[in-house]
Write a protein that binds this DNA or RNA. Structure first.
Length: 406
DNA sequence: ATGTTC
């Protein structure tokens, strides 16, 4: 019997192949749901799986756990899912904190996604891939856990952190991905393949096709984060500068195979990386260390969910004070989210403590925490009523004829 | 995750 790894045969040697080693880069202080660990075990048994790393923000996902990096000789599109290229990007505004008025800035940000963008250099169609490139959704946040957030440095945790981050300035953390484009690619991939369970041989037609579409989504998602930062800068009448952009939903080819990052920041060649907090915990800026080579150059991407979305309904938001609390944080910051269901799903209690995530990663020598960042304005979603720009701001904004359910 | 979808 030959080794099925690297072949595209429909029957893989799932039973004969020993499970890949699974490394845990978390401590007992991080609570990990049993389902997530079971899913991790299933991933390790996939054909061609070589090594799996898991992180303290690990939690269950639809096709596998979120918060892991998996090295394999085969390609598994379902491990990446539909939001191909999703990531976190940190920008610095050329705006001193002393000039910042929370309520005024929040009002200015409300029209964020209507600010005109020049997308003329984004090709509309990729003929070789038979794919129409979305431009309407470029520069938009999306739903779920996506956001863009104005932050300020809470604490510089290392002496040299002051060279990278300025306590007087304002920052923007953008968390979003490839929107409808990635979804289109994923749905197409599911449609054309008889099943994704055994993954793709990277040299097969289907494997190469997916990887090409994937690369496009990764680029589009990165551009999307830049466009959002650009729009936020225009809204606040300032400029911004990219500090770090770390994708956490993608595949990277290496000499050893293909690393599947699922909700795990791909930090190779990055001097610093943002790790998102939640409505209840600070975000962090960290330095990935050389030891991260053993975790396939992956680290956590955020606090990690404690409760899934459905589980959150009924837990909070029933009283007026609870509803108001959904849009405030302990540092005096606010959230812009007109969608109450979304606000409940993203409530403070839905997430684990990002501080513990950071501590666990540091314990394992993967990172050096540089700074904690406090949330000032978290932009999530604005309703149709608020999408119409105010008359006196029509100059640099475009009226939207689009509609969406909220 | 998706201008989602039961």
């Amino acid at each position: 019997m030959g080794n099925s790894i690297g072949t595209s045969g429909p029957i893989a040697m799932r039973c004969n192949q020993p499970a890949a080693a699974v490394a845990h880069y978390f401590t007992s202080k991080s609570w990990i749901e049993g389902t997530a660990l079971e899913q991790l075990g299933e991933i390790a048994k996939l054909p061609g799986m070589l090594s799996v790393a898991s992180f303290p923000d690990l939690h269950p996902g639809k096709y596998g756990p979120v918060g892991m990096a998996a090295l394999a000789s085969r390609l598994y599109p379902q491990l990446i899912g539909n939001d191909i290229g999703c990531g976190m990007a940190l920008f610095e505004f050329d705006l001193p904190q002393r000039k910042f008025k929370l309520d005024k800035a929040a009002d200015m940000l409300r029209g964020l996604e209507n600010i005109r963008l020049d997308v003329s250099d984004v090709s509309q169609t990729d003929r070789s891939l038979d794919l129409e490139i979305s431009t309407e959704t470029l520069g938009t946040i999306g739903g779920g856990n996506h956001f863009c957030e104005i932050q300020a440095v809470e604490d510089l945790l290392e002496e040299d952190a002051g060279q990278l981050l300025d306590k007087q300035k304002l920052y923007l953390l953008v968390h979003t991905g490839s929107r409808d484009l990635g979804a289109k690619v994923f749905n197409r991939t599911i449609d054309v393949s008889c099943g994704l369970a055994e993954g793709f041989d990277p040299m097969s037609e289907a494997g190469m096709q997916w990887l090409q579409l994937h690369d496009l989504c990764v680029e589009w998602a990165k551009l999307n984060r830049r466009m959002i930062a650009q729009r936020a800068a225009v809204a606040l009448r300032t400029d911004c500068r990219l500090i770090a952009d770390i994708p956490h939903n993608l595949v990277r080819a290496t000499a050893d195979g293909y690393v599947h990052y699922k909700g795990a920041g791909a930090v190779q060649d990055s001097a610093i990386a943002p790790i998102a907090g939640s409505r209840a915990s600070l975000s962090y800026v960290v330095e990935p260390l050389a030891a991260a080579a053993k975790s396939h150059w992956a680290i956590s991407h955020g606090a990690g969910r404690k409760y899934d979305r459905r589980n959150m309904h009924g837990r909070t938001g029933s009283t007026r004070s609870e509803r108001e609390a959904l849009l405030r944080n302990p540092w005096g910051g606010i959230a812009i989210c007109d969608d109450r269901k979304l606000a409940i799903e993203e409530a403070a209690g839905a997430y684990k403590n990002a501080g513990q995530v950071i501590a666990d990663l540091a314990d394992h020598g993967l990172i050096r925490p540089l700074a904690s960042m406090k949330p000032l304005i978290t932009y999530k979603k604005v309703s149709i009523d608020h999408e119409e720009p105010k008359k006196d701001r029509m100059r640099d904004r475009r009226a939207s004829g689009r509609h969406r359910d909220v």
